[in-house]
């Protein structure tokens, strides 16, 4: 069954910098993510968590080894494949990166529009439902400037999930949220995984989230432990 795992990493090495400054950040990583599971990636600062996550989300070019995302090899993937796979992946960043001139609703709609879906009563309803799930039903027409940090992060979560991605990659998504909201977001991700088979890989330091994890992966100095 290993072939159907949504993420498969084999013998992955990664380097940063050129020449003298060249430094290896990841060493021979082997990892499989089971469909519908919540995998939590932990490790000290600078251990390579973010690097691994960006490689799995085809946000960074694979240099050596193999990463298969939803069955597609990312080593040497062309732009068209990269764009397609990115559309099927939900990414939640530490920084919310909402578009400052779009309302909460419009930001979430951007997550549907990438699939070629125009604004219709149906897509609006889907976006509204997503905002409701993250507790922002009454903030749909607010611009990011008028939302708190936690609220902005929840909009970003809604934007990442509204397109029903098969894989969700989240880098400390709860850092900007209060404890309750953070926990609520992770519970939601877990429920989505169970209901829709969404596989989630999340970097976090929050010990309570570890309790929800199906699997905890530890990384130290670029190596899985």
């Amino acid at each position: 069954m290993a072939n159907t795992d949504p993420i498969m990493v084999r013998g992955l090495n990664h380097w940063f910098g050129q020449g003298e400054a060249r430094k290896q950040a990841l060493f021979d990583i082997n990892l499989s993510v089971v469909k519908g599971s919540l995998t939590v990636l932990v490790g000290p600062s600078g251990s390579g968590k973010t690097t691994l996550l960006t490689l799995m989300g085809c946000l960074r070019d694979v240099q050596d080894g193999s990463v298969r995302l939803m069955g597609h090899e990312l080593l040497g993937a062309n732009r068209a494949l990269t764009e397609t796979l990115r559309r099927r992946t939900g990414v939640i960043f530490q920084a919310h990166n909402l578009h400052d001139s779009l309302t909460a609703m419009q930001n979430v709609l951007m997550g549907l529009q990438v699939h070629g879906l125009r604004r219709t009563p149906e897509t609006e309803a889907a976006a509204r439902h997503m905002l409701q799930l993250v507790g922002l039903a009454d903030r749909t027409d607010y611009l990011p400037a008028n939302l708190s940090g936690g609220q902005k992060q929840r909009v970003a979560v809604a934007r990442a999930l509204v397109g029903s991605p098969e894989v969700v990659l989240a880098d400390e998504p709860t850092a900007a949220l209060d404890r309750e909201a953070g926990l609520a977001v992770v519970r939601m991700l877990k429920q989505l995984g169970q209901a829709r088979g969404t596989s989630t890989v999340m970097v976090t330091h929050d010990p309570r989230i570890l309790d929800l994890a199906d699997r905890i992966v530890e990384i130290d100095e670029g190596r899985l432990t």
Binding site: G57, E83, L85, R86, F93, N97, L98, D100, M110, A160
Partner: peptide
């Protein structure tokens, strides 16, 4: 808007 555009790229916008 570079970081917003980068986000859109990460979301798969061509």
């Amino acid at each position: 808007h570079l970081s917003e555009y980068a986000t859109f790229k990460a979301m798969g916008y061509p």
